Simulated scan of single mutants.
Amino acid sequence: MNHQNERNQTSDTLDGINRRQLILQKLEEQGEVSVNALAQEFSVSPMTIRRDLHLFARQGILETHYGGAHLCKDRNKIPDFPARIEKMLRYKQAIGRTAASFIKEGDTIFLDSGTTSVQITKYFPDVHATLITNSMTAILQLGTNRKLKLVVAPGTYREQIGGTLDISTVEFLRRYHVNKSFIGTMFCSTDFGMTTSEELDAELKRTLCAQSDQSFLLADHTKFTGNSLVKFTEFWDYDYIITNKELDPALQDQVRKLNPNLILC
């Protein structure tokens, strides 16, 4: 394998994600942006900027016009973390309890900041383990656990996800390989796979899944009814899919065709 090419591809991917995050920030602050000004600022071609803007347009974030783009007035808002964690709480807790039962003595673990995956912290077993996470909830819940080595991913705190997330977060997590990863999702559909609301979160989840011996997707039954903006994995990328028994039987059958290791709790 040509590791230099692999590193270059990773750098290009993260550079592109970082550029689009900054463009989105400018849109939020200014309401509109210019193609030529952005191309000059980021030292890329106007065509590259147009592709970035068209990606946001397909997501319903902005509308393009000659020479630039402006924010859509009626674009969808993502509920903040506290609001999302209350939704379907008893189902999320059951999934978290089941997922925690897979953690064994000496494990190294990735845990993302999803509202379902962080429920694991309430049922964390009495074992020695290493936990690597970007979740503020996990840090607060498990910070005093003397059996646990807690490794905190750096980055900018994002209230929307309840944890840290920027380019440095993804680059940091790429340095590790673990026994088990526990990953949440905004939506998961049998015809499109797992999706989340933005590219950087998708890249983080993709990294957690790829760099673990065993990966667990955690999603309550309401997550199987749609798609979000950015795809990050397929059902078959995981060793186990954990959801609650309220998942529609027809959907259960469809999921099992893609991954037989479906666990209902």
Rank of each mutant, 00 (worst) to 15 (best):
T130M: 11
Q252K: 13
N179Y: 09
D112T: 00
C265K: 14
T130G: 05
L229S: 07
E41M: 10
G96F: 00
N227S: 09
Y66L: 14
R158G: 03
D237R: 08
K104M: 08
A202R: 04
V118P: 11
F232W: 15
G155L: 00
I49T: 05
A138F: 03
Y238W: 11
P260Y: 03
L262S: 04
P260H: 05
T195V: 06
S45F: 12
N227T: 11
S11F: 10
A94E: 13
L148W: 01
T98S: 09
S181P: 06
P125F: 08
R19W: 11
A153F: 05
K205S: 12
E246S: 13
N259I: 14
M47W: 07
L53P: 02
T196W: 00
N244A: 06
K205H: 15
L204N: 07
F42D: 09
L173Y: 05
K245L: 07
H70L: 10
G68C: 02
F235W: 13
K87E: 15
V127S: 11
G68Q: 07
R20F: 00
P46G: 04
T48N: 05
C209P: 01
S45W: 13
G162W: 06
T243A: 13
T10G: 05
L229F: 10
T207M: 10
A210H: 13
N134V: 03
I103N: 05
K205L: 14
P46T: 01
S197I: 05
D80L: 10
S212D: 09
R19A: 09
T10A: 15
G16N: 14
T164Y: 03
I23C: 06
D126N: 15
P82H: 09
M136W: 01
R50I: 15
I139M: 06
L62M: 11
T156D: 01
S43F: 07
Y240H: 13
F224Y: 14
D52G: 07
S34V: 03
P46L: 04
F42Q: 06
Q211T: 07
L89S: 09
P154H: 01
K26A: 12
K257Q: 15
M194E: 00
L142H: 01
A219G: 07
L142Q: 04
V35G: 02
I78L: 14
T196A: 00
A138V: 04
S189P: 02
R256K: 15
S197M: 00
Q30K: 13
T222H: 13
G226E: 06
S135P: 00
T196G: 04
F235D: 02
F56W: 05
G60R: 04
N259M: 12
D201S: 15
G226I: 08
F172L: 08
S228K: 05
V33D: 04
Q254S: 14
L262K: 06
R7M: 14
T115P: 01
D15F: 10
N76Y: 08
R84M: 12
D166M: 12
R51M: 12
V170G: 04
S215E: 01
G106Y: 12
N36D: 15
F216T: 07
I78V: 15
